[in-house]
Amino acid sequence: MEVRTIKVFTTVDNINLHTQVVDMSMTYGQQFGPTYLDGADVTKIKPHNSHEGKTFYVLPNDDTLRVEAFEYYHTTDPSFLGRYMSALNHTKKWKYPQVNGLTSIKWADNNCYLATALLTLQQIELKFNPPALQDAYYRARAGEAANFCALILAYCNKTVGELGDVRETMSYLFQHANLDSCKRVLNVVCKTCGQQQTTLKGVEAVMYMGTLSYEQFKKGVQIPCTCGKQATKYLVQQESPFVMMSAPPAQYELKHGTFTCASEYTGNYQCGHYKHITSKETLYCIDGALLTKSSEYKGPITDVFYKENSYTTTIK
């Protein structure tokens, strides 16, 4: 009895394709271990004539594949690729409408935090270190965002349907971005203890939790000093293409032309909904596939993004 075979390709990165001759009487799992086709788990399936010449994702289970996976995804987590594939199996079914010149995501599976993050990423200057993220990001900007969303979920250790947080998501993504040249110098002034300067680099240099107003941050924000008295913390120097200011959701007025974009969060910790506000020729609110415009805006804002380049204080 002759062994019926077909020729397929296996890959971990969709760049390096490895030619395989597979036995049609055995499952993919018996031949390769966990195997995925377009995100779908085909591990328990036997090869079919229609699979001839198709590319299958496999887990990096030998040295060659491990090197290829690390170079593309910059992670050695053995569960990463499987999590990416199972997320992709959902995100490829989502709709990605162009809204006001940006790629958004039609609401499904509690994905409003991903839509808000995706919209924000198209408006701030950011370059990702893992080629996987950078490639998928370019495709997302062009309207094909399924891979990018699935990668975000995998890097953030999230599953489809789980509630997510924009600030946490951005923080994970910033860790995989090139923020080497970003720098922030802060000064804390206390009447009792004097003053202390701190220099922050990388992710810490672009994120701040405690106030939404970048102007206020430049002037000074009140913080408790270690001595128990009130101290003032203010920005001395900022070198970065953008800054992200966050605070627990509270009524906040966004003035046209003073910011790049913002995240609105309605609801409580267990259950809520994100919308995205962007400042173009007027203010726009993007909620999944829905767009509304207004000249002014007041609502429960939790993150505001500002364009920056270089700032030095005039406070002496």
Rank of each mutant, 00 (worst) to 15 (best):
E2Y: 09
E2L: 10
I6R: 07
I6D: 05
T11F: 05
I15T: 12
I15G: 05
T19I: 13
T19G: 13
T19M: 09
Q20T: 13
V22A: 15
M24K: 10
M24G: 11
M24F: 10
S25P: 06
T27V: 14
G29N: 06
Q30P: 07
Q31M: 13
F32W: 08
G33Y: 06
G33P: 07
T35Q: 05
Y36L: 04
D38I: 09
G39Q: 09
A40M: 14
D41N: 10
V42M: 12
V42R: 06
T43N: 08
T43Q: 14
T43A: 14
K46E: 13
K46L: 14
K46Y: 12
H48S: 14
H51Q: 10
H51E: 11
E52F: 11
G53H: 12
K54C: 15
Y57K: 05
Y57T: 11
V58C: 10
L59R: 08
P60Y: 06
P60E: 07
N61Y: 14
N61P: 06
D63N: 08
T64C: 15
V67P: 07
V67D: 13
V67L: 15
E68M: 06
F70Q: 09
F70P: 04
F70T: 08
E71C: 08
Y72V: 06
D77H: 06
S79N: 10
S79V: 10
F80V: 04
R83H: 07
R83S: 08
Y84C: 06
S86Y: 08
A87M: 05
N89F: 12
T91D: 04
W94A: 01
Y96F: 12
Q98H: 09
Q98R: 14
V99P: 06
N100E: 14
N100W: 05
L102Y: 08
K106E: 13
K106H: 12
A108F: 04
D109C: 05
D109K: 05
D109T: 04
N110P: 05
Y113A: 05
A115K: 03
A117P: 03
L118P: 04
L119G: 04
I124L: 15
E125D: 14
P130C: 08
P131N: 01
P131Y: 03
A132C: 07
A132L: 03
A132G: 07
D135S: 09
A136E: 14
R139N: 11
A142Y: 11
G143I: 03
A145L: 03
A146N: 02
A146Y: 07
I152L: 08
L153W: 06
L153G: 03
A154W: 03
A154F: 02
Y155R: 02
Y155V: 02
N157A: 05
N157T: 01
N157D: 11
N157Q: 09
K158R: 07
G161I: 02
G164D: 03
V166M: 08
E168Y: 07
M170S: 06
M170W: 04
S171Y: 15
Y172N: 15
Y172R: 12
Y172T: 12
F174S: 02
H176S: 05
L179W: 07
S181G: 12
C182M: 03
C182F: 05
K183S: 09
R184G: 15
R184W: 05
V185W: 03
N187A: 12
V188Y: 07
V188R: 08
V189E: 14
C190D: 00
Q195L: 13
Q196D: 08
L200M: 10
V206I: 10
M209W: 15
G210S: 02
T211R: 05
S213V: 05
Y214M: 13
K218H: 03
K219W: 03
Q222R: 11
Q222F: 09
Q222I: 10
I223E: 10
P224E: 11
C225G: 01
C227R: 01
G228A: 01
Q230W: 14
T232D: 05
T232K: 08
L235D: 00
V236H: 06
E239V: 13
P241Q: 10
P241Y: 00
P241W: 02
F242M: 00
F242G: 04
V243F: 02
V243W: 01
M244W: 04
M244T: 00
A247V: 04
A247L: 05
P248T: 08
P248Y: 14
P249D: 02
Y252L: 08
Y252I: 14
L254H: 00
K255G: 07
T258G: 08
T258C: 08
T258M: 11
T258S: 13
F259L: 01
T260L: 15
C261F: 00
C261K: 01
A262G: 00
Y265W: 02
Y265V: 00
G267R: 06
Y269G: 15
Y274S: 01
K275F: 00
K275I: 07
H276Q: 03
I277L: 07
E281A: 06
Y284Q: 13
I286S: 02
I286Y: 09
I286K: 00
G288N: 07
L291N: 13
K293P: 11
K298Q: 08
G299L: 00
P300G: 06
T302M: 00
T302F: 00
F305W: 08
E308S: 09
E308Q: 07
N309K: 12
Y311G: 07
T312L: 14
T313L: 15
T313F: 15
